[in-house]
Design a protein around this nucleic acid. Structure first.
Lengths: 224, 224
DNA sequence: GCAAAAGTGTTTGGGATACACCCATGC
DNA sequence: GCATGGGTGTATCCCAAACACTTTTGC
């Protein structure tokens, strides 16, 4: 195929940004300002331009559409590339999707896009097949928690064991046994106790822990 | 961004096709007929055109460059989408990669592309970053064998337990204990004995087994 | 003293691992 | 009868799962 006559398909990037708020897993959505699906909620996404990498496009789109700096994400992972014949009413396209995990991410006050975090268990009606993409991302995240320490990206640098467990429970959407959880997680040797405690109401203060090493690690024994 | 002025990046598809030959894991390569990397070995790949899905492009490229019909693959799985700034000397590009598994796939006698299966443990010098892509695919396949029945795509419909074990050993690149392997695999309840035996030399004939259900299944307990 | 979350051990069952010999066949 | 791969069982260890009470604090 000669370079001169080659026309590539439309290429887009969509991001599934998760964070925890009030012990619930939330996902970032924006309100579409333009057709198609004008005024529907959707994942932040946009075109990838020539000369741009997919991650550069993701950064740009997150900044422009949601006021979010990707430097504030603790972990970014590519999810899947969807063939989107009939997905975008404007015609066939290919969509590269990424998942981002963060903590204390702000909803910018963009009056056009209205970036807003919604609980994954209670989503509004979504544009395109974004509901499926979020479900796919959620499954990937659940799986990731069982064989890596990815949970760190959803937590503060220092955290109590109860916070850790609650984070797991929020993502996995089921309750875990406190004693077994602590025994198992501590035996993985990923976290260390600090000498700090957090006082947090009319009850015993919680010891704070931190991960030995920043960044993603694979677990020696798969969790759960 | 206005539709009229939008120019997407170059989009390509590359395929990592695996099969077993003589108890070794082999990968399909072609000899590049054109620059860049003319005369280097490379994964079969090519451009994705507007109006074409990534899987359609994969099918077309496999057919044209390696004479391979994707219907002969037992399993096809998307691997990853690579940002390829500086990967293709002709400029930035995005490459969608797929892994395909098959059995008794022929090397067509194309005198230009010379499609040939090489042992993954003994690859020639490769164009682009295709060596890394093959390594990535191999890791994904190893992992996939531990939590799915993906091995079926590398085997005949009926197979002996020794063939099954040898296939696992070829992909995982390590030896397994025969008694434990059989006990474990049979306990998964995925395969059933047939009444057929295969005579295959000066020794006891091997009973043949088959999977209960065609297609990919997730294991109830992860293997290995 | 009471409410509320933090913290802590033991028992049991199932599966992973390690390991060696007999069986059926061709020549 | 011997070489070749097919086929089989047991003992041990570790880990997952189940399960309830004491501690520390604020009010």
């Amino acid at each position: 195929m000669a370079k001169e006559t080659y026309v590539p398909p439309t290429l887009t990037v969509d991001s599934v940004i998760f964070q925890l708020t009030n012990d619930k897993l939330m996902v970032l959505l924006i309100k579409r300002a333009n057709e198609p699906f004008k005024n529907s909620w959707a994942l932040p996404g946009g075109y990838i331009a020539a000369g741009e990498t997919t991650t550069e496009a993701m950064d740009r789109v997150l900044k422009n559409k949601a006021g979010l700096n990707s430097k504030n994400l603790g972990l970014i992972e590519q999810l899947y590339t969807f063939d989107t014949i009939a997905r975008d009413p404007r015609g066939p396209a290919v969509a590269v999707t990424y998942m981002g995990l963060g903590r204390n991410l702000a909803e910018s006050d963009d009056k056009t896009q209205h970036p807003t975090f919604f609980p994954v268990t209670d989503l509004p009606k979504l544009a395109y097949d974004h509901k499926d993409i979020i479900a796919y991302a959620h499954e990937r995240l659940k799986s990731k928690l069982t064989y890596t320490n990815a949970i760190f990206a959803l937590l503060e640098l220092k955290f109590s064991l109860s916070e850790l467990q609650t984070a797991y429970e929020a993502v996995l959407d089921r309750s875990l046994d406190k004693r077994n959880f602590r025994k198992k997680f501590l035996s993985l040797g990923l976290i260390q106790p600090t000498n700090e405690y957090r006082q947090d109401g009319a009850h015993r203060p919680a010891r704070l822990y931190r991960f030995h090493h920043p960044g993603l690690q694979t677990l020696t024994r798969s969790f759960d």
